[in-house]
Simulated scan of single mutants.
Amino acid sequence: MTPRKTSQTMKPATAAKKLGVYLPATPAEFQEGVVSRDELNALQTDPPEWLRELRRNGPHPRPILALKLGISIGGLARGGITEALTTAEVEALKTENPEWLQQERATQAEVRREAARLKEEADKRG
C-alpha cells in the first residue's frame, strides 16, 4: 500500500512573501493558519478582494517598495524607509523625489548597466 500523499503547507509569512503582500496587513485567519500549495495556487489564480486590495493599495513589503521605486532593498534602508508604505505614500515619495531617492535610482541604473555589460561579454565568449 502506498502512503497517502499529503499536501505541502507553508507558514503564512512564506505564503505572503510568495503573494507579494505585507503579512501584518493580511486578514487574521490568513496570519494564524497554514497555507497549502493548493490554497496558494488558488489565491494566485483567483485572488479574493482582500488580496487584490492589498496588491493595489498596500501597505507593501520592502521588495515591492523597492521595485515600485526602482531601487534596491538596501537603498530603502539607506533612505530611512524601514516600514511598509501604501501606494499613495509611494506615489508621494516619487513626486517629492528626494535627493536620496535620486541617488539610489542612479546607483540602481548603474548596477543594471554593468550587469548587462557583463552578460554581453559572457555571451561573446560562450
Rank of each mutant, 00 (worst) to 15 (best):
110 E>D: 10
76 L>W: 02
37 R>N: 02
82 T>L: 15
2 T>Q: 08
32 E>L: 09
42 A>Q: 06
18 K>I: 03
15 A>E: 03
124 K>H: 08
45 T>I: 14
20 G>K: 06
91 E>Q: 15
99 E>G: 10
19 L>Q: 07
27 P>R: 10
84 A>F: 06
104 E>A: 12
116 A>R: 05
75 G>I: 08
96 E>I: 03
4 R>V: 09
66 A>P: 08
64 I>E: 13
88 A>N: 15
88 A>P: 07
81 I>F: 03
45 T>S: 14
37 R>K: 01
99 E>A: 13
40 L>A: 01
106 A>F: 07
77 A>V: 14
62 R>C: 00
87 T>Q: 13
126 G>C: 04
16 A>C: 07
85 L>W: 05
106 A>T: 12
98 P>M: 10
110 E>N: 14
33 G>F: 09
69 L>E: 10
64 I>R: 15
108 Q>G: 03
124 K>Y: 10
70 G>C: 04
111 V>L: 09
76 L>S: 00
108 Q>R: 06
40 L>D: 04
65 L>S: 01
115 A>R: 04
13 A>D: 06
24 P>A: 05
21 V>N: 01
90 V>D: 10
18 K>L: 04
83 E>N: 11
53 E>Q: 12
89 E>F: 08
40 L>P: 01
66 A>E: 14
116 A>V: 05
89 E>K: 11
32 E>N: 12
78 R>F: 06
57 N>T: 13
11 K>M: 04
121 E>W: 03
88 A>L: 11
77 A>F: 14
60 H>Y: 07
116 A>C: 00
6 T>W: 06
103 Q>Y: 06
36 S>L: 00
105 R>F: 13
108 Q>A: 05
32 E>H: 01
70 G>M: 14
90 V>P: 13
73 I>G: 15
34 V>Y: 00
39 E>G: 00
20 G>C: 04
48 P>C: 12
93 L>R: 01
101 L>Q: 00
103 Q>G: 02
7 S>F: 07
29 E>H: 10
48 P>L: 03
125 R>Q: 12
3 P>D: 14
110 E>F: 06
32 E>V: 02
52 R>I: 11
4 R>Q: 11
4 R>T: 11
36 S>I: 00
54 L>Q: 13
100 W>P: 07
101 L>V: 06
118 L>T: 08
34 V>E: 09
22 Y>F: 14
29 E>W: 07
57 N>W: 04
77 A>W: 11
44 Q>E: 10
86 T>V: 06
51 L>K: 05
81 I>P: 03
29 E>K: 03
55 R>L: 09
66 A>L: 12
72 S>E: 03
68 K>M: 12
84 A>K: 05
105 R>L: 05
69 L>I: 05
49 E>W: 03
54 L>D: 12
125 R>I: 07
63 P>T: 15
71 I>H: 05
70 G>K: 10
122 A>P: 00
57 N>P: 04
64 I>Q: 09
70 G>T: 11
37 R>T: 04
30 F>Q: 02
94 K>E: 15
78 R>T: 13
79 G>S: 11
112 R>H: 09
